[in-house]
């Protein structure tokens, strides 16, 4: 039942393998050739530069929007701050409600039909409704991001809490563990990897939700910047913004990986040793 991230080990493996074995030169070579072909095609008039911007123009646009005009920072700040606040609030809500529903069979039974319906609805589609209800500005953006973020942590927490290992639970009970002990030492450690997978999905969804909200509101944020540039047929700058989002997406991916290593350390090679060494240090020198 848990929602999983689509980024698979196969791709990451292939990527790492091919980058390691001195193939990086080949990769860069292919990339440069493609870029040059694009540039050439544009200069020879095969690709309309109005719609398909030249790589050189995109690079110039990067320079323009980041340093010369430096107008992107304001929009970046607006988008990223909202994404992070909305993600924290939305996923907190998701985890809390997921745990509540997971522990309470009665609520679970009654909530199930609503969850199914909610799962089938494209949640971003509620954006115009929320904007109409809460008005233009920060409130509705935050509400959209929270709504988009809510679901993956909710479902994953729920399934993590439900799928407790029965035998371990039996052992805990037979040793008369209290409810808090069961929660802290059994349920949470088992559920955390699944919850983290949900959190990662939620952060990606939060970025998409923010973009959609900005497309509709068109006031500030990187989404409205892309929209304005495209409307003005300034495609090079629009692409510079999109590649900025690629970088942000990559940072999100890496950041969540780091966070996962830190929180669910026992899942990874060496993580457990590192943690026990750390604990030993703190125990020796109190």
């Amino acid at each position: 039942m848990a929602v999983q991230d689509a980024t698979s080990e196969v791709l990451v493996d292939t990527l790492e393998r091919s980058l390691r074995n001195r193939r990086i030169a080949k990769h860069v070579g292919i990339f440069l050739t493609l870029t040059l072909l694009w540039e050439l095609g544009s200069r020879m008039g095969w690709l309309d530069p109005l719609f398909y911007p030249r790589p050189s123009n995109i690079i110039r646009s990067f320079w323009l929007i980041y340093f010369q005009n430096a107008n992107v920072w304001f929009h970046l700040y607006s988008t990223i701050s909202l994404v992070i606040i909305g993600w924290v609030l939305g996923s907190m809500l998701g985890i809390g409600l997921g745990a509540l529903v997971g522990f309470n069979t009665v609520i679970r039974r009654f909530l199930k039909p609503y969850v199914i319906v909610l799962e089938a609805t494209p949640r971003i589609a509620v954006a115009p409704l929320l904007i109409a209800a809460l008005g233009f500005g920060v409130n509705s953006k935050l509400a959209i991001i929270m709504l988009v973020c809510f679901f993956a942590p909710f479902i994953n927490t729920l399934s993590g809490v439900i799928n407790v290992n029965e035998e371990r639970l039996e052992l805990f009970r037979s040793m008369r563990a209290s409810k808090t002990q069961i929660l802290r030492k059994l349920v949470l450690p088992d559920a955390i990897p699944v919850i983290m997978a949900g959190e990662r999905l939620a952060l990606t969804a939060a970025l998409s939700g923010a973009l959609v909200a900005e497309f509709i509101q068109r006031d500030k944020g990187i989404g409205s910047l892309i929209l304005v540039y495209t409307r003005n047929l300034n495609m090079a700058s629009a692409f510079a913004c999109i590649f900025t989002l690629t970088i942000i997406g990559f940072l999100i991916f890496k950041g969540m990986e780091k966070l996962d290593h830190y929180i669910a350390y026992w899942k990874y090679e060496g993580g457990r040793e590192r943690m026990s060494a750390k604990r030993k240090r703190t125990m020796v020198e109190p």
């Binding site: 998409s208 973009l211 540039y229 999109i242």
Partner: peptide
């Protein structure tokens, strides 16, 4: 890359 960012383009 969030695919939705490509919408205007």
């Amino acid at each position: 890359t969030p695919g939705i960012a490509l919408t205007p383009v």
